[in-house]
């Protein structure tokens, strides 16, 4: 007997993510799902952001890694709340892992929650974790055709930070090519060429954070 089903295979995660989204909406917390390949500089971007905006915004971080709590310790050194999830081989964070991690955070009065996903441009694209926006990082030590190679990730991202621009003189990365590839996949994507090391370009990223945080608060 053949039974038509038509059920999304990842519906359990999708349902849990949408519950989380409702919860964050009530609290007025802006939630960003930060994704990139390993080594693009997610944690360094966070360290700089958390330090530069700490007098202005209350921020917390959920760190996803296969192993170690190195990143959570780096982030916590800025004074922000941080909790580490070890996926122990899992290539992406899931909504239920994020829900469990929330128990370790004080969410009252929080403005922004960053969820640093496992370094991987493929799998995390399929698993929402309750975020308002997906933000990707691409560093100039990678190929400028990366958006073309990982189309889904850039298609569904609201913003992309092009990191390590202080290294542009030493690499073959073409900023214009990368931007064009990203816009092909998503015409409305916000692009921020930055250097988390020198701080160049970070002001525009901070303005983006401020405006989305204000919009989220207004809706709560």
């Amino acid at each position: 007997m053949q039974i038509p089903v038509v059920r999304n295979i990842l519906e359990a995660n999708a349902n849990e993510a949408s519950e989380l989204k409702d919860f964050f909406a009530q609290k007025g917390i802006l939630v960003l799902n930060l994704m990139s390949s390993p080594g693009a500089g997610k944690t360094t971007i966070l360290e700089r952001t958390l330090t530069d905006l700490r007098d202005e915004l209350r921020m917390a971080v959920i760190e996803g890694d296969l192993q170690t709590d190195n990143d959570a310790r780096r982030v916590a050194a800025t004074g922000a709340q941080a909790v580490q999830i070890n996926t122990e081989g899992g290539c992406h964070l899931t909504a239920s892992q994020v829900r469990a991690a929330l128990a370790s955070l004080d969410l009252d009065g929080l403005d922004i929650l960053f969820i640093e996903n496992v370094g991987n441009l493929v799998c995390p694209a399929e698993f929402d974790v309750g975020e308002d926006f997906k933000v990707t990082l691409l560093s100039v030590t990678e190929g400028d055709d990366k958006p073309e190679k990982y189309p889904l990730m850039f298609h569904i991202s609201a913003a992309t930070l092009l990191n390590k621009i202080d290294l542009l003189p030493y690499v073959d990365f073409n900023l214009e090519n990368a931007s064009r590839h990203a816009r092909t996949l998503n015409a409305d994507i916000s692009l921020f060429p930055v250097s988390a090391r020198t701080g160049e370009g970070m002001a525009a990223w901070y303005d983006w954070l401020r405006s989305h945080r204000a919009a989220k608060k207004k809706l709560a």
């Binding site: 053949q2 039974i3 038509p4 089903v5 038509v6 059920r7 999304n8 295979i9 990842l10 399929e126 073309e148 189309p151 889904l152 298609h155 816009r183 092909t184 996949l185 998503n186 015409a187 409305d188």
Partner: peptide
């Protein structure tokens, strides 16, 4: 995954109508 529109040549900002699904059919 993406390409210019064969009708008007626009390269940017196409919507994905299908190609992202993952479901049990029967």
């Amino acid at each position: 995954a993406f390409a210019p529109c064969p009708g008007c040549g626009q390269e940017l900002g196409h919507t994905v109508v299908s190609g992202r699904e993952l479901y049990i059919e029967y």
